[in-house]
Write a protein that binds this DNA or RNA. Structure first.
Length: 568
RNA sequence: CGGGGCGUAGCGCAGCCUGGUAGCGCACCUGCUUUGGGAGCAGGGUGUCGGAGGUUCGAAUCCUCUCGCCCCGACCA
């Protein structure tokens, strides 16, 4: 490709509304342009990268025994009503009507459509298992799209769905996909971790997320320094601390006036007590009744864990009225002592000595509170993990890192097959619901994550498997006939070797071309300049690491090929 | 949806408070010089000041409504 012919509008400045590095660089490098909030055009440079990701995904999925299909973007409402998600999914589901006033939605995910496809065609256990995937544009009407391709409303996703006769078969495919995803992200040269995750609205029993490690990631993940345990902090378990020997003499409980001091910070500052001494009391409404949930003042409650500990189907922070009924006080002064609710406490509360908590009375707290002596509670792990917590699997400690979720694998079970009547006949001739799995990869997000991990002050540093071109040839001055001829010759021989090459044939100053080359991040740059050319030499520079070598004209194409065959 | 902010040239912004000829840098076009890390000089403005209404002799500027976008939060792959 010739730079002069390519729609490749590079920018010196990044637009004001870009706020992560991958988004800035994608815009500056002429890969993407915004059309509307969370909706982008992919320019030629951007599409090349996306295609590379897709090709890797496709080849590994095919290798793993999955078959590619394509499902529609526009989906009739009936399918979503059958599964029950038409009402559950909320405003993220973009609903439209056709000219006959029939209802449709733009597919944010395709469980319904695939389940419908399979129930029509599959009758017998002999046709199972089956893994079908597509690479398709999805639409989710995000509340707040941001970060360019990382959280758009319209985005390209690879989604696969597997169908099984038995749990064992579903389990095997889950492991198969786990391995396949690892291979895919390895081939993309990404530094990632597979972590245990919550299942969210899609449902199912458990899941793994594939997280690319990056400081700008939207998710926090906890991982053990010793063993392989890693989990989304939403889910990460915390090893309960061993009950410590008492350090303080229990003192007499005492009520103190704390006018207007409601938050942990306010109370802590007012009473000059460390947040670790405070017992944070949160009143929740649940289907199991009103609950007072306790965590140590410096920790955050985890609602998912609370829900699981209570075996509740919903938990919701109580409104003012409920709080008043349970505690007799306005919000901000709740405590476990004499509260009219079931009390559940995090393990971290167990070791608090002479602690501080709300008095269940306006503008008052009580001090010298000691668990067991002053109140009783059921103990469970109900807080978010933090840096330094004990690993639940071994005696290592957890560290917290940030990650970008690029893949997610679920065991769906029979949620959709039961609600939509997708059944098969087993060996005994008995009708049973299909057991399903679901496996997604964000294609655009993967490309963006790669930039988050691979860039410097000058621009993108593409790993070779994702790079839009393998090599860029830069004639320093296209008005010099010798230089021009040499560059053209090199360009032809590189192309002849099957190396995707960009020739910067623009009549621009050398500095401009170098800056653009660094910005767009092609792995190898071949510079053709007058002085070196007089000795039959050109300069070969690697974008990553910046290694420069002078190479004889005739050896150049081979030298480039050699560099491209190296890893990363 | 709650809170905050912004819409002025292709991009980044100033002008608005205190109404009176629409500006700066980059980009772009022409010419000359320059030519290995975002060149210099000279010339050129490419704009419904987001839109609609109002106040006024006069509105980018003041008022009302509206649309779009961004940031923080709750939600989510």
């Amino acid at each position: 490709m010739r730079f002069s012919k390519m729609l490749l509008p590079t920018l010196k400045e990044s637009p004001a509304d870009a706020d992560v590095i991958s988004q800035k660089l994608m815009i500056r490098a002429g890969m993407i342009r915004k059309v509307a909030a969370g909706i982008y055009n992919l320019l030629p440079m951007g599409l090349r990268v996306i295609r590379n990701v897709e090709d890797i995904v496709r080849s590994e999925m095919d290798n793993a025994g999955a078959q590619e299909v394509q499902m529609p973007v526009v989906i009739p409402a009936e399918l979503w009503k059958e599964s029950g998600r038409w009402d559950e999914y909320g405003k993220e589901l973009l609903r439209v009507r056709d000219r006959h006033d029939r209802e449709f939605c733009l597919g944010p995910t395709h469980e319904e459509v695939i389940t419908d496809m399979v129930r029509r065609e599959v009758r017998s256990y002999r046709e199972l298992p089956l893994n079908l995937y597509q690479i398709q544009t999805k639409f989710r009407d995000e509340i707040r799209p941001r970060f360019g391709l990382m959280r758009g409303r319209e985005f390209v996703m690879k989604d696969a769905y597997s169908f099984h006769a038995t749990d064992e078969s579903a389990e095997l495919e889950y492991q198969n996909m786990h391995r396949t995803y690892s291979r895919i992200f390895e081939r993309c040269s990404l530094e990632f971790r597979a972590v245990e995750a919550e299942t969210g609205a899609i449902g199912g029993r458990f899941s793994h997320e594939f997280m690319v490690l990056a400081d700008t990631g939207e998710d926090a993940i906890a991982s053990c320094s010793v063993c392989s345990y890693a989990a989304n902090v939403e889910r990460a378990e915390v090893r309960p601390s061993q009950p410590a020997p008492r350090k303080e003499e229990p003192r007499t409980i005492e009520r103190v006036s704390t006018p207007g001091k409601k938050t942990i910070e306010e109370v802590s500052a007012f009473l000059k007590a460390a947040p670790q001494k405070l017992i944070k009391t949160l009143i929740y409404e649940t289907d199991k009744g009103v609950v007072a949930a306790l965590v140590r003042g410096d920790f955050d409650l985890n609602e998912m864990k609370l829900k699981r500990a209570l075996d509740a189907s919903f938990v919701r922070l109580a409104d003012e009225e409920t709080v008043k009924k349970a505690t007799g006080a306005p919000v901000g002064f709740a405590g476990p002592v004499n509260v009219k609710a079931r009390v559940i406490a995090d393990f971290s509360v167990r070791d608090i000595e002479n602690g501080v908590t709300g008095a269940n009375e306006a503008d008052a707290h009580i001090v010298n509170v000691n668990p067991e002596r002053d109140f009783s509670a059921g103990y469970a792990d109900i807080r978010n993990a933090v840096e330094g917590d004990g690993c639940p699997r071994c005696n290592g400690t957890l560290g917290i890192k940030r990650g970008i979720e690029v893949g997610h694998i679920f065991k769906l079970g029979t949620k959709y097959s039961v609600s939509m009547g997708a059944t098969f006949l087993d060996e005994a001739g008995k009708e049973r619901p299909l057991i399903m799995g679901c496996y997604g990869i964000g294609i655009g997000r993967t490309a963006a994550a790669s930039i988050e991990q691979n860039h410097d002050d000058f621009g993108i540093i593409w790993p070779k498997p994702l790079a839009p071109f393998g090599c860029e040839v830069v004639p320093v001055n296209v008005n010099d006939e010798e230089v021009k001829k040499a560059a053209e010759g090199l360009y032809d021989s590189l192309i002849g070797m099957g190396i995707d090459t960009l020739l910067d044939d623009r009549d621009e100053r050398a500095g401009v071309k170098f800056k653009d080359a660094d910005l767009i991040g092609i792995p190898v740059r071949v510079t053709v300049g007058e002085k070196n050319l007089k000795q039959g030499l050109v300069e070969v520079k690697e974008r990553r690491g910046g290694k420069v070598s002078l190479v004889k004209m005739n050896d150049t194409a081979n030298a480039v090929r050699l560099i491209l065959s190296e890893k990363a």
